[in-house]
Amino acid sequence: MSAEILNQTPTSGDYPEKHFGQTFNSRLWVKFMDNNFQEWVGCFPRPYQSFDKVLTDNANDTAFIVAGGQGYLIDISTRELLHEMDDIPVLESVIHTTNPEYFLVGACYCIYIFDNRKLIKRYDPDFTVDGIYFTEQKDQKAIGHLYSYEYQQDLNVGFSFDLVTNEMTIDKNVKIRQLGPFEFVTVTEKEVKENESFFTKILRRLTGK
């Protein structure tokens, strides 16, 4: 079983096709192959020119597709749409975890937890968030970084999300700078201090203090 994003629109008739969601000028084409080696393509609207991703749960014949920041849970064998997410909030990351087995989705200000068939929970942090980016799983925790003005004014901070208790823990020792919409680099403590010193000088010039 597999799923892959196609870089070009497939030629009509090459594969069975199924269209999901509303019609948009921008579309994402994904080629699926089920456990019987039958191939087909799905077409997904891209409401925003942003994040695209495809992940599969091979044990359960499902896939999670993010097309232009909007999410879809698909049964690959039956070609059934199990869940279509709203286009707001825009999705920014997704990982597939094991033990427990989830599709874990980071949106602008919240987290969505899917099992292999449905949305089972939405988690909202108890502080203001504007960007959640999952990167990997370590043991029974999902690891990533997020942006919150309450922690760093110009950097993302690390966090872990417990897959069993659904508790979030902030790790301020991890500092990430965002270069582009989905481009990030780790920042050293020296760079943070130099950056803080630079902004302190600018503030002094503006305030005359």
Rank of each mutant, 00 (worst) to 15 (best):
P45F: 02
P47T: 10
G42A: 08
C43N: 07
P89R: 00
C108A: 12
P125C: 09
N60C: 12
E80A: 09
F114M: 05
L81S: 08
T56C: 15
D57A: 12
Q70W: 05
E92Y: 13
G106E: 00
V94L: 11
R46M: 14
Q49R: 13
A59W: 11
F37A: 14
A107V: 05
T62R: 00
V41Y: 05
E84F: 04
K53Y: 14
L55C: 11
I65R: 04
I65E: 00
E84V: 07
P45A: 04
R117V: 11
T98P: 06
F51Y: 15
D57E: 09
E101M: 10
L81N: 03
A59N: 15
V94H: 02
D52E: 13
R117F: 09
T62N: 04
I95D: 01
H83V: 13
T97M: 07
K53E: 14
Y123D: 03
Q38N: 14
V105W: 02
M33Q: 15
E84G: 12
L119N: 08
N58T: 15
V90S: 06
R79T: 10
N35T: 12
A59K: 14
N116A: 15
V41E: 00
F44C: 01
Q38L: 10
C108E: 09
Y48P: 04
D87C: 09
V66E: 01
F44T: 00
L104Y: 04
V90T: 10
V90C: 09
D34Q: 08
N60W: 06
P100S: 12
S93G: 09
L73V: 11
H83D: 13
H96S: 15
G131I: 02
W40M: 01
N58R: 15
G71I: 03
P89Y: 01
T78A: 10
A107S: 13
L82G: 04
L104F: 06
I95Y: 05
P100W: 13
D86R: 11
V129T: 10
